[in-house]
Design a protein around this nucleic acid. Structure first.
Lengths: 208, 208
DNA sequence: GTCCTTCTTGACTGTTCGGTCAAGTTTTCT
DNA sequence: AGAAAACTTGACCGAACAGTCAAGAAGGAC
């Protein structure tokens, strides 16, 4: 116990850990490789050894950058949800009215999904274990709230038939999620036709 | 090698294994308990020992009724998909036109989901591992094909705007799946309001 | 009763896995 | 240069896990 400082993993509160350039590269390599393997093999069937072997480093490296395998997955998740939201916000920025905001948001969602199919697969797994589902619920709540804002604005502007904005937002998410999922699962390509269908289902289904 | 017959598990082809009344009860108990535990704890985190302990039997019992843990989950899955389809068929039987068939199918889907939330959770996990995803893809293909039949009939009868029936069926499944999922995940109750919303989104979104 | 099949037990096996650690190397800071 | 911090190694550990098996109990068929 009297030994050296032992900067053991991210301490309780959180000491974000200072990384050198080399460190940042390593961490990213681990993150990327793990994401790919988790998505194609499943989370549990992919061992920490698989990951470090794949990246070509010793096992200790893994635990230098991540406190645990679970925490790694949480980090992948958080980063993905954050990136998706950022993408949506950018896509919506210059829209002129609520309906256009909704349409662009829907398209941005699907396009993001098309470029991150591995994350979508991971997401499906995460819903099935509490540790990870908690994080997803948070993201979902935020996403639906964002959408509901625009739906409500549309209702107020008389562009959308009155109704429970949150529920309509949930249904919109349903259409986009499922179409994205069927792409992730490899049953359909995410082309313009699908994008247009999603928009048509959501908007013409709810526009008064 | 000269030992007794050794009726080892379900043999390659398949010898459905003759069960006594006691046997059938045991098997059902294992199936039910496992479904519940898998749904609340996750598949991998739930060990075979957890299951047999929960039911109060020795470990050998498990392997008398199931060749492996994976095979047990596949059996749960197959049974569930079969039951859902049967329920839908019954709900649709006396409908008068394609639109009514679609509406009743949608309602039946959601109602079935409401009474089998554990299965829905399991389903999400299954999409993430090939062994199980294969089974789900089959179920999904069948489900969408069923729905597409009615959509096509609606198009032919001039009740639905022309379009790719399969794609529309996919979107319909999207709405119902997501609403069901948000129920399974515990964010919303599956009341009449939700049922009506689903029908409204699907039908008024595609009716010409 | 006796024979045969179904069913049950629980200790055991071989393996794998997440995580640790003492020791060493490289980079950065001063 | 020298100290400190960041990084890396890979053998090692205890726990847990899916699956096996030799032995026997229960119950139906005759």
């Amino acid at each position: 116990m009297s030994s050296a400082a032992a900067p053991r993993s991210t301490s309780e509160g959180d000491a974000p850990r200072r990384l050198t350039a080399r460190g940042r590269d390593r961490k990213k390599a681990l993150l990327d490789f793990a994401t790919a393997r988790f998505a194609e093999n499943g989370f549990h069937p992919t061992s920490v050894s698989d990951i470090v072997d794949g990246v070509g480093v010793g096992k200790g490296v893994f635990y230098w950058y991540f406190p645990s395998k679970d925490e790694l997955l949480l980090e992948i998740l958080r980063e993905a949800l954050h990136d998706l939201r950022k993408t949506q916000k950018e896509a919506i920025r210059d829209a002129e009215d609520p309906l256009q905001r909704l349409e662009r948001g829907i398209r941005a969602s699907l396009e993001w999904s098309a470029t991150h199919p591995e994350v979508l697969r991971l997401t499906m797994f995460c819903w099935t274990e509490e540790t990870f589902a908690k994080e997803l619920r948070k993201g979902r709540r935020i996403n639906i709230a964002d959408t509901a804002t625009h739906v409500q604005a549309g209702i107020d502007a008389g562009m959308i038939a009155p109704g429970d904005a949150t529920m309509l937002a949930t249904a919109i998410r349903g259409v986009t999620d499922e179409l994205a999922r069927s792409y992730a699962v490899g049953q359909r390509s995410l082309d313009d036709e699908v994008l247009n269908l999603a928009v048509r289902m959501c908007l013409h289904g709810i526009v008064g």
